[in-house]
Nucleic acid binder design. Structure first.
Length: 426
RNA sequence: GGAAGGGUGGCCGAGUGGUUUAAGGCACCGGUCUUGAAAACCGGCAAUGGGUAACCAUUCAUGGGUUCGAAUCCCAUCCCUUCCGCCA
């Protein structure tokens, strides 16, 4: 959420941000009018309240000295009637204004290229694309041929966009989670967290999933709970309504969680394979930082995620998203795209974003530089480190052999009893 | 799910209708004292909104209600603790 005063003082900037994101600036319509209305109503009602408060004190002192206060009491009764008419009006205008405000996206950083996704900017490319003496297969062809990846049975249990993994692929999934967590908690200095997977509406609002993107998540019937679409939500909201010690910043946390997404609006996209699931595993990185450090911290967070790909020796590129392709809450986003030999394309495997104070204002995450100093909003960042399912996809496709077996990347072997290959069970 | 107790500022905690403009303590900041520090003493110290400002309003879990006036009384909801029940 943007600061109300910021929107009031810089309507042109907010307008530009909306247009740059390919949205209609109509989202701002009525803001100024509402703001003026709210302030004028507030002045009126606050004056009445002040009058009533003074009179009430007089009643108290009159009664104490045994004098008659009936006249004042009658007068005050009338004041209260007036106040009761205006108060709901104030509440209504405030609600309208905050609804409008909570639907306005973050202002994006100056370094973000303007335009739609065709303006995304390739920042760097890492690794060599593998050379094959044969036609490389897609991961689902490989997985199904190995007899270790099953979409048919998954559809019996749950439906489309779910998968069942067996044996060595299930183990590979576990190995990847442990490898990623060990890497980030070891060398990269993140604290490991095991958070809830069911999240209440307030927390979903805090990171920006609500109110605008309710249809992207699964809601639990009869409860004010949602299936977490990403560990960004529980990890960032760990610090909701807290005043942080400046000495503790930056705070770095990581968690493995299952993630659940409704994938509404992506009908027909990536219908085969593990790419776009209703349920997938992800190791998430979250940072809470000082405002002046956040953009630098985004660079190091992105490198932390890249390290996973480098250790797995998977070719990838880093893309700086354009203003039109970025998420609602983000001020700047790098996507990591891993190369997939099957379709022969780069696919998103991590998204690393700096949210400046946008989430912190919604979630009320603050800090104080010194005792007595004003409270300030912290900056929040997050990135996938990495999406586990898509990492498995990348390994299957990049490490495939002519016989359909998969070579296990060196760094994962300690997690798999030093096994070197995944082979067909038949 | 049942019963009981509770939710007050950064933290602890007093407070059952009118100097509560939220006592007191801790922590923190400034000062006195000291070679320096500690201790002691003095002073300061909530957030949000409105206002050029003086200042005003709101906030004691949340939402309603009673009243001239609510942290305090009433109703509903949420959360926490303890005990019981159920249970991986």
């Amino acid at each position: 959420m943007l600061d109300l005063k910021f929107v009031r003082d810089h309507p042109a900037l907010v307008r530009k941000a909306l247009i740059g994101r390919g949205q209609s600036p109509a989202a701002l319509d009525g803001f100024e009018e509402l703001d003026l209305k709210r302030r004028s109503l507030l002045r009126t009602v606050e004056e009445l309240k002040a009058e009533r408060n003074t009179a009430s004190e007089k009643v108290a002192s009159l009664k104490k000295s045994g004098q008659d206060a009936e006249e004042l009491i009658v007068q005050n009764r009338e004041l209260t009637q007036k106040i009761k008419l205006i108060d709901p009006e104030v509440a209504q205008v405030e609600e309208e204004q905050s609804r409008l405000l909570s639907n306005i996206p973050n202002i994006y950083d100056q370094s973000v290229p303007e335009g739609d996704e065709s303006h995304n900017k390739e920042i760097r490319v890492w690794g060599e694309k593998p050379e094959f003496s044969f036609e490389p297969k897609n991961h689902y062809e490989l997985g199904e041929a190995l007899g270790l990846m099953d979409f048919q049975r998954a559809s019996k249990i749950s439906g489309s966009r779910f998968a069942v993994l067996y044996g060595d692929l299930s183990r590979l999934n576990r190995a990847l989670i442990n490898f990623m967590l060990d890497l980030h908690t070891g060398g990269h200095g993140y604290g490991e967290v095991w958070p809830p997977a069911l999240i209440n509406s307030k927390a979903m609002f805090g990171t920006g999933q609500l109110p605008k993107f309710a249809e992207d998540s699964f809601k639990i019937e009869n409860y004010d709970l949602w299936l977490a679409p990403t560990a960004e939500v529980p990890l960032t909201n760990l610090f909701k309504d807290e005043i942080l010690e400046v000495a503790d910043l930056p705070i770095l946390v990581t968690a493995y969680t299952p993630c659940f997404r409704a994938e509404a609006g992506s009908a027909g996209k990536d219908t085969r394979g593990l790419i776009r699931m209703h349920q997938f595993d992800k190791v998430e990185l979250v940072k809470i930082t000082l405002p002046e450090d956040s953009m630098e911290e985004l660079e190091s967070l992105t490198l932390n995620a890249e390290t996973v790909l480098q250790k797995l020796n998977l070719p990838y590129r880093v893309v700086l998203l354009s203003s039109g392709d970025m998420g609602f809450s983000s001020a700047k986003t790098y996507d990591l795209e891993v190369f997939l030999p099957g379709p022969g394309v780069y696919r998103e495997i991590s998204s690393c974003s700096c949210f400046t104070d946008f989430q912190a204002r919604r979630a009320n995450i603050r800090f104080r530089r010194q005792k007595g100093a004003k409270l300030e909003f912290a900056h929040t960042l997050n990135g996938s480190g990495l999406a586990v399912g898509r990492t498995m996809v990348a390994i299957l496709e990049n490490y495939q052999n002519p016989d359909g077996s998969i070579t296990i990347p060196e760094v994962l072997r300690p997690y798999l009893g030093f096994q070197t290959h995944i082979r067909s069970q038949n």
